[in-house]
């Protein structure tokens, strides 16, 4: 198996000098390529903090995170931005598409930041939006799309940079049931057919049921880490 994330003994403490809050406690995490993993736990259990650390958006107070062989723990801010651009795809709860760009331009934007040639960008944008079932909405701006459609564009954007893995923070929280299932179908298909690694935090039982691995966090620590055989 091919290791994508190797997190050793990571902790995150907020306000260490006043009233310390231990958001993440001594977490060891090993993620292989092609996993479809759910990070679950009650509010305040440290899911988002852990995702931020794994995604290079935050630094752990102690421990280290190695992604695809690169220890990102001590990378400077600018190097981390560059690392994220080429290695990690993000899907946010509130979609976070660029409102002034069309679906096509939102997906193309990431490749533009990577300086991908125009021809290649055009081909990949069409392929990705086809894959998420939005070939008829390419030239539509986010405000004219439903929540589910916006989140599908966000998934296409996350895939555009050809990342090592995709981090999704509560991707279905703002979606109705039908849209949530549709999104999960797309993510599962990408995982299955393209071996894309997904790690997502969620409260949603329907989402948890689709994951092949479920990591439960309680008070910043891993309470359980179980493999599920029943997937999509």
């Amino acid at each position: 198996m091919d290791t994508v994330i190797d997190a050793h003994n990571i902790s995150k403490v907020y306000n260490p000098d006043t009233i310390p809050v231990h958001a993440v406690n001594n977490v060891h995490l090993h993620v292989e390529r092609g996993e479809f993993t759910a990070l679950v736990g009650p509010s305040g259990s440290g899911k988002t903090t852990l995702l931020n650390i794994l995604g290079g958006l935050d630094h752990p107070t102690s421990g280290n995170v190695v992604i695809n062989g690169t220890d990102i723990t001590h990378l400077g801010s600018n190097k981390l931005i560059d690392f994220r651009l080429h290695n990690i795809g993000f899907v946010f709860q509130s979609f976070n598409l660029i409102p002034v760009l069309t679906a096509r331009e939102n997906v193309e934007f990431i490749m533009l930041l990577q300086n991908v040639p125009k021809k290649e960008r055009d081909q990949r944008v069409v392929a990705l939006l086809n894959e998420v079932g939005l070939s008829d909405k390419m030239d539509v701006r986010p405000a004219q799309l439903s929540g589910g459609q916006q989140q599908r564009v966000a998934v296409a954007r996350a895939l555009a940079s050809k990342p090592q893995f995709i981090l999704a923070d509560e991707p279905t929280a703002n979606l109705d049931s039908a849209s949530a299932f549709n999104l999960l179908d797309i993510m599962a298909k990408l995982n299955r057919e393209e071996n894309m690694t997904f790690i997502f935090s969620t409260h949603d039982q329907r989402v948890i049921e689709r994951a092949r691995r479920v990591i439960t966090l309680v008070d910043g620590s891993i309470a359980s880490d179980t493999a599920q055989t029943k997937t999509d």
Binding site: G55, L57, S77, N78, I81, D82, R84, L85, H86, F90, F92, N96, I98, I110, L113, Q114, R157, S161
Partner: peptide, 12 residues
């Protein structure tokens, strides 16, 4: 913040 999170460099 979001643009930087998805990989847009500060300079850009």
């Amino acid at each position: 913040g979001m643009l930087m999170a998805i990989g847009m460099k500060r300079r850009r």
